[in-house]
């Protein structure tokens, strides 16, 4: 063999040079990072060894779950209250974010509009729902409205960002067509952009709804309505069978909503009875959505 890759003594290609040293450096960096981090976490050997046992102990005591007791306390209603909060929050976020996304997209908005709008999305996304709810509770009072509003505001950030990406991924042809008929900015958005992004954006809303159901369950823990308050109060009383019931009911509802919503999203993006690869709304938009579907929160 005159040309081709360098070969070792046994005729195999030689391993690429330099990777071993780089790997070692990466490994050492990781070990250092973990070592340093563990020093800050009050870890002792017996705590570390005892933790799985403690967690298992609590898990075991949740069985059998006290469904009757939980139902009597109205937990079913609380779980559905979480769903209502998530729905209203998602709607607020969706309705507010869609027009804003048009102002943030690079291909349809001028720089001086799009930079501030995008920064606003970033700032909103950086504030967790729980913190928003904390700020809102003194204003709206304890209860589900604070939760719905917190989720709504937070959703504006993510939904706005995703919708912006969808708009930036459109086919520019229809935009040109509207411009050629003499249409104004508003009509080119309505007829050139909206029909293209609507399937993707609808699926984004559904996906955000799935995330928001989990978020609204958590919001109950600080008194913003929903099932979280039940979990906290049952844990305070160390009534573990009831905790088990609350958890199981939440899991069932969350899984049910995830399943239905995922099926709807697939139907919206791929249409009925189409081949899996056959995508409506442009390939790039589909890629954006695929990116989102795996994300857990």
């Amino acid at each position: 063999m005159a040309t081709g890759p360098t070969t070792g003594t046994d005729g195999r290609p030689a391993a690429p040079t330099g990777t071993a040293r780089r790997r070692l450096a990466m490994g050492a960096l990781l070990v250092l990072a973990v070592g340093w981090s563990i020093t800050g976490l009050e870890v002792t050997v017996d705590r570390l060894l005892g933790a799985p046992g403690d967690a298992w102990d609590i898990f075991r005591r949740m069985f059998p779950p006290a469904f009757a007791e939980a139902a009597e306390r109205g937990v079913v209603g609380k779980v559905f209250e979480s769903v209502h909060i998530a729905w209203i929050g998602t709607l607020i976020g969706a309705l507010a974010s869609l027009p804003l996304a048009f102002l943030a997209a690079g291909n349809v908005a001028p720089v001086w509009v799009r930079v501030p709008v995008r920064q606003m999305f970033n700032v909103i996304r950086a504030v967790p729902e729980l913190i928003l709810a904390m700020i809102l509770i003194p204003i709206t009072g304890l209860g589900p409205w604070a939760g719905a509003l917190a989720i709504g505001v937070h959703s504006i950030g993510t939904l706005g960002k995703w919708a912006t990406e969808a708009i930036e991924g459109i086919d520019e042809g229809p935009l040109e067509a509207v411009a050629a008929t003499g249409g104004r900015w508003a009509s080119s958005m309505r007829w050139g952009v909206l029909p293209q992004i609507l399937p993707v954006v609808t699926s984004q809303w559904l996906f955000r709804f799935e995330i928001n159901v989990r978020a609204s369950a958590v919001l109950g823990m600080i008194g913003a309505g929903g099932v979280g308050s039940e979990l906290v109060s049952q844990l305070v009383f160390r009534n573990f069978p009831a905790v088990g019931a609350v958890l199981l009911m939440t899991i069932v509802v969350v899984l049910a909503i995830d399943t239905v919503s995922a099926a709807l999203r697939r139907r919206i993006i791929r249409g009925a009875g189409r081949a899996p690869g056959d995508v409506v709304g442009g390939d790039r938009n589909a890629a954006v959505l695929v990116d989102l579907t795996g994300i857990g929160r």
Partner: peptide
């Protein structure tokens, strides 16, 4: 399907308050 803070609350109950 269990929200992250539910895990946190459960584990705080199990292993005690704190970063651990």
């Amino acid at each position: 399907a269990v929200p992250d803070l539910f895990w946190a609350k459960l584990l705080v109950t199990a292993v005690g308050i704190g970063a651990f």
